[in-house]
């Protein structure tokens, strides 16, 4: 059910506004914040001003430290954040996975709790304590790469969990790989880079920044272009098709059968 509500949230008109706002900030504010760093290297925190970091520290102490510890070394309730970098913070907080509502098989996506400035401040603070992967450069997020290469890499590296059309899939013990439609390019990139939760890490030696760009290009291509055959039935494959033909196909045919054999008035 929670999954349904998450879906509903994303399709909620306000959610679109939030998405656009995040997009704008990422392209504008985010760029200004990290303008001095042009590549996705390991120490981007230098650009963040001390006041932003201080703001982040306060937010961290109030919202994150109870699980991750004031020194970020982690506690029984949450992992260490040493070395996770700004990208991980931006992904976890920016998609609403953090702060967690409750312990469960995996952190669920829910409405984003912080403004983009606050998220940026948190990211800057975490990165200032211990450097890690930075928020990716805008140039890699334009979905203007090679969709064919991206598609091939997606099938080899991602489709087994996320499904070939990015519709998501099941993992062990109640965990799942989420749907990828409607996810911001930044967040897709950051997820590959940092390996949130049980997702493996795809570092730049495995999938180069250009490879990641191509994967985003592919995902955005199938997201932004309608399925040529008509409604895709959730891209869930033969199970959805089978249910559809039994319920609606045979249903319609049986309705017609009853009409045909009913005696006319």
């Amino acid at each position: 059910m929670a999954r349904k509500s998450r879906k509903a949230n994303r399709r909620h008109p306000l959610a679109t506004v939030v998405l656009i706002a995040i997009g704008l900030v990422v392209t504008g504010g985010g760029y200004a914040l990290f303008s001095s760093t042009t590549t996705a290297s390991a120490d981007t925190n230098t650009a963040a001003s001390q006041s932003v970091i201080d703001e982040g520290e306060k937010l961290f102490a109030a919202n994150c430290a109870s699980c991750h510890g004031l020194d970020m070394q982690g506690t029984a309730d949450g992992p260490s954040l040493i070395g996770v970098g700004a990208a991980a913070v931006n992904f976890q907080v920016g998609t609403g996975r953090m702060p967690m509502a409750m312990q469960g098989p995996q952190a669920m996506q829910k409405p984003v709790q912080f403004t983009d400035e606050q998220t940026a401040a948190l990211a800057a603070y975490v990165a200032s304590i211990s450097p890690g992967p930075a928020i990716p450069d805008e140039s890699l997020l334009q979905a203007d790469g090679d969709a064919a290469n991206g598609g091939e890499l997606f099938r080899v590296n991602c489709a087994m969990c996320h499904n070939v059309a990015g519709a998501g899939g099941a993992l062990t013990e109640g965990k799942f790989a989420p749907e990828l439609t409607g996810v911001l390019a930044t967040h897709i990139y950051e997820a590959m880079l940092t390996g949130p939760q049980n997702m493996p890490v795809f570092n730049d030696d495995n999938l180069s920044p250009e490879d990641k760009r191509d994967i985003i290009t592919y995902l955005k291509y199938i997201e932004n272009n309608p399925s040529p055959g008509g409604n895709e039935l959730g891209s869930l494959g033969p199970v959805a098709e089978g249910l559809f033909v039994w319920i609606f196909g045979l249903g319609a045919v049986i309705g017609l059968m009853v009409w045909i054999t009913a005696k006319s008035n």
């Binding site: 087994m160 969990c161 899939g169 993992l171 062990t172 013990e173 965990k175 790989a177 390996g195 939760q197 049980n198 997702m199 493996p200 890490v201």
Partner: peptide, 8 residues
């Protein structure tokens, strides 16, 4: 399908 935390 590799889960990096549970190693399943």
């Amino acid at each position: 399908l590799y889960e990096q935390q549970t190693h399943h």
